[in-house]
Design a binder for these strands. Structure first.
Lengths: 157, 157
DNA sequence: ACAATGTAGTCAATCAAGTTGACTATAATT
DNA sequence: AATTATAGTCAACTTGATTGACTACATTGT
């Protein structure tokens, strides 16, 4: 088998490895804090809930999965006290998913860890280069998807 | 629901979106060429097979999945004429997975498309910035994983 | 106003891609 | 030569998604 060096890696592989590296570090550290039942997709879901809650369908669109899958995910997270279903204020069919106190603990922990990971990266490549990297990636994602988030935020493997 | 702008995105989300964007484009284009039965993971598997074949266990380690999962994946790809199992030259227990002609077609198409995606990105941010981006990502992945590929190349979702 | 159509959420069945465990054949170790 | 380890496959199971069917409520058009 061939083990190519990092230099010959194409951009896509590089992005995959970078993403894996950072998301793995994040969730390893969340585990240590007692949030071992939280998966990456839950973190993305929390982003769509913040700050004022979201309906199941909104979350489903954001994550690029079905509303039924969201419903199961909410069951899972509700059982573990990360989120709650509240009645929708105007639509009696609807429900609003909101974070519980414990849900906020995860979100805040996540934010802190991500900041620390970013600091770690700054130590490696410097603050200017990291700033450039973020700008360039934002620009690419933004322009290639024409201002929209990719419909499939989820990396399909 | 909150739809934050790209500027406020943390690095991890940005990497996730960049990866999704490029891998989706790659596989959309592979579909058009008639390779709609090829998933991202197969592309990564091909990388571990090139150029001289690999055993199931080598592939399993590279992809961070079990040898049983690899075996099933090889069944799938062998049925569709992308790979072949060959006898191992020295170990009668072992088999070597190699690309078929059709397998090489995918690999070459993939390479071409990835190059084109990279050119597209160069148009957006310039060749110097893309070079920096690749250098920085390589450096980060390399240093944070201490010279090893992450054991889990696969983005766990 | 109300009939027809559309939408939010859930339940159930199914599917896809992975896992663990058991096994066979062969290789390596002592 | 006997023991232990390894490569690969088969089978059963798990997980996280899907599609389809349904209920309750909302929206639209006459």
């Amino acid at each position: 088998m061939n083990h190519e060096g990092f230099n010959e890696l194409d951009l896509t592989s590089l992005l995959s490895l970078s993403f894996s590296t950072s998301i793995n570090e994040l969730h390893d550290r969340l585990s240590v804090l007692g949030f071992e039942d939280i998966r990456p997709v839950h973190g993305f879901m929390f982003k769509s809930i913040i700050p004022n809650g979201a309906t199941g369908i909104e979350i489903a669109e954001y994550l690029g999965i079905t509303k039924q899958a969201v419903s199961k995910m909410v069951d899972y997270l509700e059982q573990r006290d990360y989120v709650m279903r509240k009645a929708h204020p105007t639509d009696k069919r609807g429900k609003i998913i909101v974070l519980t106190e414990r849900g906020w603990l995860v979100v805040n922990a996540k934010k802190k860890i991500l900041d620390e990971i970013e600091q770690q990266w700054i130590k490696k490549i410097g603050v200017e280069r990291l700033q450039m990297l973020k700008e360039d990636l934002s620009k690419l994602v933004y322009e290639i998807n024409e201002g929209e988030l990719p419909t499939k935020i989820r990396p399909v493997w």
